[in-house]
Amino acid sequence: MSNNNTPLALVTGGSGFIAVHIILKLLKKQYRVRTTLRTMNRQDEVRAMLRAGGAANLEGLYFVQADLSSDHNWDEAVKGADYVIHVASPTPNKVYKDENEMIQPAREGVLRVLRAARDAGVKRVVLTSAFGAIGVGHSHHKGPYTEEDWSNTDAKIHPYQKSKTIAEKAAWAFIRSEGHGLELATVNPVGVMGPILGNDYSHSNDIVRQIIEGKLKSVPKIYSDYVDVRDVADLHILAMLRPEANGQRFIASSSENLSMLDIANILRKHLGDDAKSAPKKELPNLAVRAAAVFNPKLRMVATLLGQDMSTSNRKAKQLLGWQPRSAEEAIAATGKSMVKLIKGQMKS
């Protein structure tokens, strides 16, 4: 049973895929957890996802309404919190007419949370950044990327990746100039896979759904690293608690570089008939670039063709003792839970 002496962690964007798994881990560790929602009518949905993830007792969970685009209620959200894990951010699923529609909310949202945390006397903020802030916009880079690397925002990169880079850089600049002792660590996940607990899941999971449902007859030649969401949650908590994590960035990755065709093959291996429509061919790069001219959703994909996006997880493993699952286990878990979700949706 939680009480007022139990440490309190604020997790922003509580309905999100990564955030739900972080909340699960914190509750199991007996933390009190306050989480923000843009609209309070999603409380039951979050509770349902947490129960699906194995949370037996939600007594230590509290909700507060707050939106990254407004100052309203952030002082209430951070009040009394020992730690803040800032996960909420605009996602790459939306199509924007102007890149600033994604960049500005991400940057201003991070600064809004950091100011509120500083003013409330929070000990440390852990920011969920992304590989998109580390390894894009470098046409001749040979991996693996490390935490010393930053994405090149002067290159032609997707607004989502640019937003993540600009927001994280703004966060570090704030800590240096206005933090007044507030501690910061960042976690930079690659493609996030793992168990899906509800209808709110990651961009990478949506690709798995398209593969399972046969919507992708062929796949682009993109090679990326992947990580299990449960391990991403563990890394956030290590970054929150360990003294040596202060002031550090951590890449969350299994450090296994896989093609999209590799993902399709893993799903076929683990799901059998449920993945019988998974693609077996790759698309020529020229065809993807041509299609991206007319399909905005393919534009980020087109910028990643031919890129070396391999990463090193050495820092998180050596400094924090973090041990991630294999990419295959993470992808299989995504596939199995996605099939369950699809079948549930077909029945309802």
Rank of each mutant, 00 (worst) to 15 (best):
M240Q: 09
A173P: 08
W150K: 02
S151A: 13
I207R: 03
A170Q: 11
N246Y: 14
A171V: 06
K164E: 00
G191W: 10
A130Y: 05
D231T: 04
G137A: 13
H140G: 11
G143D: 04
P189N: 02
Q161P: 11
E148L: 06
I237V: 14
Y160T: 02
N205T: 03
K215P: 08
I211H: 00
I196V: 08
D200M: 15
S202N: 08
I166N: 10
S177R: 14
G135C: 07
T186F: 05
G181Y: 13
S202P: 03
V229F: 09
K156D: 13
V229Q: 09
V232M: 07
R176A: 15
V232G: 09
D200T: 15
I196T: 01
H140R: 12
A167T: 08
S177P: 15
K169E: 08
D225H: 10
I237K: 15
K217L: 12
H203P: 01
S224A: 12
K162A: 04
S204W: 00
A171C: 06
D228S: 08
I212D: 00
A173R: 02
T153Q: 01
S224V: 11
D228V: 07
H158P: 03
A155N: 05
I222P: 13
H158N: 06
R209D: 01
R230W: 07
T153I: 02
N152D: 11
K164I: 00
R242C: 15
R209Q: 07
F131N: 02
V229I: 09
P220V: 07
I134T: 10
I157Q: 08
A167Y: 07
L238N: 09
P159S: 05
H140S: 15
H203W: 03
N205H: 06
Q161F: 13
E148P: 04
W172T: 07
T146D: 01
S224F: 15
N152T: 06
K169H: 07
A155G: 07
K164H: 01
W172R: 04
A167N: 10
I175V: 15
V232E: 11
H141Q: 13
F174H: 12
Y145D: 05
A245L: 06
E148F: 01
Q161L: 13
S139I: 12
Y201A: 01
E244K: 14
K164V: 00
L241K: 12
N246A: 14
G191I: 07
G191D: 12
K215L: 12
Y201P: 02
H203Y: 03
Q210K: 13
D154P: 03
W150C: 01
Y223K: 15
I211C: 00
G143K: 01
L182Q: 11
G135R: 03
G191V: 09
A170H: 10
Y226S: 02
R230L: 08
E213P: 09
I207L: 09
L235I: 04
P159T: 03
